[in-house]
């Protein structure tokens, strides 16, 4: 077990502010590594890291792969159509097969909430949740926190808006837990079907008054230090969650004009991939306030930190 003192990274709900701080500090050190001509350190030499993705992903899978490679681990990418693993027993069998190959870390993405925790209970390997259904995507949350901390020097006291399909978003859940634990305040914004008022109650017990749900983008942006724009998935149309992409963009597309309603210099984030013109305008995505490319670069450093803290030996640190 690495210096984090945990076997797995399953969610940000279960981490303390100190643990999150430790990961972000470590990521800062690894960010330096990324700037060197030789971007490798031997921290995970001889360890096996497997990327097991049951949902298509380019950026997260690549980011984890690069992170593991830069730590000198042996990395395997396995992409499975969800149809081939219908039963969890088969998922457990798959994991057991990898364990027989001296698996060190399993990076897992599935369409099912709780699947990372489920596998973690049945496996000796370290499990890193790379997105489980609608539950959490903790390394995305961490890289968003890292991006904010680099820009503002702190997360505490920030006003952060999260806009879009919050209901179905694992990114939003991880972001909110991380932001609250580090002392920020959150406005969740979207139509009532994708961002119901009932969401606020999830965090009300642990962080009273720190999460607000609003349905008007202008209200969410007013006084915001940063805004995270979520990807809209077109299959939501089939479940009657909004009438059309046209109407959605009229109400919720982050445009330059709307962004002027936020604090000057409000940081714009998007976990990608973007639907330009639907949830975010091209001008904002590519504009001076956009941190979107920086998020991607920070992702590698944060994932190196996570892998190292979970699975790296103490002396290699």
């Amino acid at each position: 077990m690495g210096t984090l003192g945990r076997k797995d990274l399953l969610d940000l709900e279960g981490l303390t502010a100190e643990e999150i701080g430790m990961i972000l500090d470590e990521a800062e050190a690894f960010r330096e590594v990324g700037l060197r001509p030789v971007k490798k350190v031997p921290a995970l030499r001889g360890r096996t890291v497997i990327n097991l993705f049951f949902e298509p992903s380019t950026r997260t899978a690549t980011s984890f792969h690069l992170a593991a490679q830069r730590l000198s681990a042996d990395v395997l990418d396995i992409k499975v159509g969800d149809s081939s693993v219908k039963k969890g027993e088969t998922l457990l069998d798959t994991v057991a097969t990898f364990e027989a190959m001296d698996l060190g870390v399993l990076i897992l993405r599935t369409a099912h909430s709780g699947s990372a925790a489920f596998v973690a209970r049945h496996s000796r390997a370290s499990i890193v949740n790379a997105g489980d259904g609608m539950h959490e995507h903790p390394t995305q949350g961490l890289l968003d926190l890292f991006t904010l901390r680099r820009r503002f020097g702190r997360v505490e006291g920030l006003e952060v808006a999260i806009v879009g399909d919050v209901l179905h978003s694992r990114v939003a859940r991880s972001d909110v837990w991380g932001l609250l634990k580090l002392g920020a305040r959150v406005r969740l914004c979207g139509p009532a079907t994708l961002c119901p008022q009932a969401l606020a109650a999830v965090w009300e017990g642990a962080f009273p008054g720190r999460v607000r749900v609003v349905h008007e983008l202008e209200a969410a942006l007013e006084g915001a230090d940063a805004v995270q724009v979520l990807r809209i998935q077109l299959e939501r149309l089939q479940r009657f969650l909004f009438p059309s992409t046209r109407e959605y963009s009229r109400h919720y597309c982050l445009t330059s004009a709307r962004l002027r309603g936020a604090k000057p210099g409000c940081l714009v984030m998007h976990p990608g991939p973007m639907n330009r013109g639907l949830e975010i305008s091209g001008g904002v995505a590519d504009g001076p306030q956009s941190a979107i490319r920086g998020q991607v670069a920070n992702g590698v450093a944060v994932r190196m930190a996570v892998l190292h803290l979970l699975a790296g030996s103490e002396e290699a640190a």
């Binding site: 219908k86 039963k87 969890g88 027993e89 998922l91 457990l92 599935t110 369409a111 099912h112 909430s113 709780g114 699947s115 489920f118 259904g133």
Partner: peptide, 12 residues
């Protein structure tokens, strides 16, 4: 049985 319950919540 286990095949129906010792699985992810969605699948159970």
């Amino acid at each position: 049985g286990g095949l129906d319950k010792n699985v992810e919540f969605d699948q159970a």
